[in-house]
């Protein structure tokens, strides 16, 4: 079996935003529309402002709340775990926005539908990596197969990310590390 997931290694992430822009480029997203972006960790979690990030899009949950609550069945889940949203079926009721604790579905007001990360399933089916993963210059963002790859050193619910075992988000995390800092007196 295959169970695809994103792995987000905040120790390696350099905050370059290439992942988010690669996504916009791949799908020609409307201005203002962002499927993946960097979330800076608050200073309680990492001691320096704007210096550690989680790159997040859809977490392709095993128990997707978006899918469960969608009245029109716009969401489907593939056997490999990818949660796919169909914009043509979506009527823009935004119930999924109320149900996704990770803020993944985005409402496109002009189009009247919700959009979200598709894990680039067409690319995966062609043997390619998702656009964001291919873009990551430091391998901080990777595609893993939870049924095959060893993810024992990763965390499923790190600080800065909602603890929602009821949804079983598939994303795995490695936490950031702060350097020793020598400041001068001013």
């Amino acid at each position: 079996m295959t169970r695809y997931a994103f792995s987000v290694n905040a120790e390696l992430c350099i905050g370059c935003s290439s992942c988010g822009m690669a996504c916009k480029n791949q799908y020609n997203l409307d201005p203002g529309m962002v499927w993946r972006k960097l979330y800076p960790l608050s200073e309680e979690i990492y001691p320096h402002k704007d210096r550690a990030f989680y790159s997040l899009a859809c977490n392709h949950c095993s128990q997707p709340a978006c899918l469960e609550g969608c009245p029109v069945g716009a969401y489907t889940q593939r056997e490999d775990g990818i949660v796919v949203h169909n914009e043509d079926v979506c009527i823009g009721c935004r119930n999924c926005l109320r149900n996704c604790p990770f803020g993944a579905p985005r409402y496109n007001e002009e189009e009247g539908h919700v959009e979200k990360c598709s894990m680039c399933w067409q690319r995966i089916d062609e043997g390619l990596l998702p656009a964001c993963v291919q873009a990551c210059p430091t391998n901080a963002l990777t595609l893993v197969d939870l049924d095959v790859d060893d993810v024992s050193s990763t965390v499923q619910y790190p600080p800065g990310f909602p603890y929602r075992p009821d949804l079983e988000p598939s994303t795995r995390f490695v936490l950031p590390v702060a350097p020793k800092i020598v400041r001068r007196d001013v």
């Binding site: 009527i91 823009g92 009721c93 935004r94």
Partner: peptide
């Protein structure tokens, strides 16, 4: 409220799990 009001009838599509369908 709907982005595509003409699709409202389709809201009955997911009675199995969606409370919104049941509500309709």
């Amino acid at each position: 409220h709907l982005g595509k009001p003409l699709g409202a009838i389709r809201m009955l599509a997911n009675l199995g799990t969606a409370w919104l369908s049941r509500e309709i």
